[in-house]
Structure formats: C-alpha cells, structure tokens
Design a protein around this nucleic acid. Structure first.
Ligand SMILES: [Mn+2]
Ligand SMILES: [Mn+2]
Ligand SMILES: [Zn+2]
Ligand SMILES: [Zn+2]
Lengths: 158, 158
DNA sequence: TGTTCGTTCGCAAGTCGTGCAGATTGACAT
DNA sequence: ATGTCAATCTGCACGACTTGCGAACGAACA
C-alpha cells in the first residue's frame, strides 16, 4: 500500500476528500502486516480518534480496496481481513489463534489444472492452514527435549 | 461420500439414529456434484419432505462433516458449501453465477513456499475465481465470429 | 408396548456487513 | 474570511448466514 502522503495526493486529485478519519486509516494500514479485520482497525482507530464510527472504517477500507490500494481477504476466519500488501502472494492462517502471515509460492503458475473446462480463470489463491510456532509450543506430541527445528525460511507444501 | 446404505449402517453401529430426515440428506448429498449450500439442500429436501427444518439440515450436514463423510467449504461466496467429494481436490468458482466445479492440481505438493517460518501446515487449498463458460457467452470482448477455443480438459494456472 | 435418550423443530440470538438519511465538513470560489 | 455544495461521517436498522436452546418427538431396543 502506498504512503499516507501519496494516498492523500491521489485522493485529492480524484475529487475525493481527505478527512481526518481517512488519514488515520491511511496511517494504520501503511506498513501494517498483521491482516487486521475492520473491527480490529476500529479499535486501533478509536484509541487515537474517539468517536470514529465502525461504519466509516468499513467504508474507507472498502473504498481503498476498490481503488486497488489494498486487498480484502476472506480467509474463512469469520471476518474479512484487509491487506496493505498488494504483491502477488498467498497466506497461511493459524487454526488456533487466527494469526495470518504472507507466504510466497514460486512456480504456482504453470501447474497443470484438470477440470476447468471452459472456465476463464482470473485469479488463483492458495490458503494454508496450520498451527503457528507460538500456538504449537507445548501442544504437540513431539519429543519433550527438543522443539522441532523448523526451517525458518523455506518448506515444502503440504 | 459413501452411499446412503453405508451411512445408515455406519450411523447405527455408532449409536446414532437413522431418521427420515437424515436418510433424505444422505440421498441428496450422495453423488451430488454441485456443492450446494444448506439453504439449497433445504429447498430440495422440503420438496420431498415438507416440514423438515433448516435447523436439521444444518445439524446433519455439520455432523456429516465432523465424521469426515463430506467436506464443508468456505469459498467466499457468502454461505458455506457442502461437498460429498472427499478426494484431495480444489475448486473454481464463477464470479457471476457462483457456480462451483472441482479441479485437480497435480504437482502442488512440493512447490517451494517462502514465509512459513515455523508454521506447521496441515492443509492447503487452492481457489480459482473466474467466469464459467455459460456466463462468458456474449459478455466478453472477444472477436464476434469465434468463441475462444478453450482447451476442455487442461489449462495452466493463472 | 414401554422406556430411553438422541433428534427434530421453532425461535431467539449472534456475527458480520450494508442501506439509509440527517448532520457534518472538506474543498473551492468569491 | 466567508459562503456554497457535494462528499463524507455517524448511528441505527436491516439482511444474510449460522448457532444456542429447550420442549416435543420418535428410533432403537428390551
Ligand atoms: Mn498478505
Ligand atoms: Mn469439490
Ligand atoms: Zn497460533
Ligand atoms: Zn457463471
């Protein structure tokens, strides 16, 4: 997502007003990497701007998504999540705590897909579900003396 | 999903009762390939059994999913869809009409995934979005004299 | 045929998101 | 600086989807 200054510029040149509420959300989303829900952003925003309405948070996020400044995600966790990262990437979500992280899958394009006879595909998203490192602590059946030495950077799918 | 007879057997041996409502849903789901919502199944069921409740449809589908007899899917189309196909497969959904089809992606396992540091992945699902052949008719900007000769069996991702 | 406990049903309630309309205010011209 | 006007904000009601609850019901078995 672009910087608050760039968004301000862009909004004004498009006849859109730059309100304090919008500026606040520009700031809260910029460089945010935790895929917040509208409600979570409403909580953060309310701390800095008491009286801001949840309706406005929804409205602004929807607008930003429509402009392509951010992506709205349905990860099956109940509420829509908003993502300032507009790169071509995918997600992994923790079953236990709902934490979401970005993942990058190389070579996904070009895989043979059987069954889409005639379907004109416009978008493909990959969603991983599992358990995050924090939630895994003390909950798995691994040997008691050693945590599984997970490769911190690269693993294989499934 | 297993046959109504097999499910009946399985239910009874597990101390679960085989009610007319359940038998009907066994039949409606068996060999169903259109990924219906609870409400759609409720409509079908009501035709054959007036008075059956939507609550019971939800209950039975949830139970079957918990037993692994079917899968419940959140494809971002609003309502949960229920899938008697328990194979390892994925889905493509039409943006316009919501139609869903099964797709099989080979080689998805083994793709290098960057960013899941420590996440223990238990499941990976791929969701394609696009336009189905029926909805594409007369709505695209293709040359007017020829429909795009889509390969009917195999295409490449994205 | 009677007992029992799982099941069904109807309704209330919960979650998430949107429609609406009056009050507010940013942007710009005067 | 002030006025104008349309875009925006807010609060509330509403819609779609799903689940909680408890009384009535009925399948399974003796
Ligand atoms: Mn992301
Ligand atoms: Mn399927
Ligand atoms: Zn977690
Ligand atoms: Zn379609």
């Amino acid at each position: 997502m672009r910087s608050p200054a760039e968004l301000t510029e862009s909004f004004r040149t498009n006849g859109l007003k730059v309100t304090p509420q919008r500026q606040l959300l520009f700031r809260l989303m910029h460089e945010n990497d935790c895929h917040p829900t509208a409600d979570a952003l409403f909580a953060e925003a309310s701390a800095q701007m008491p009286g801001i309405s949840l309706r406005t948070v929804y409205q602004t996020l929807t607008d930003l998504a429509a402009m392509g400044e951010l992506r709205s995600l349905d990860l099956g966790t109940g509420a829509t999540r908003f993502d300032p990262n507009t790169d071509d990437h995918h997600h992994v979500v923790c079953d236990r705590c709902g934490d979401v992280r970005d993942v990058y899958v190389s070579g996904a394009d070009g895989l043979p897909v059987d069954g889409l006879d005639g379907f004109e595909v416009r978008e493909a998203s990959i969603l991983f579900k599992g358990v995050c490192p924090r939630c895994a602590v003390g909950h798995d059946m691994a040997s008691p003396t050693s945590t599984t030495p997970n490769n911190p950077a690269k693993e294989k799918l499934s």
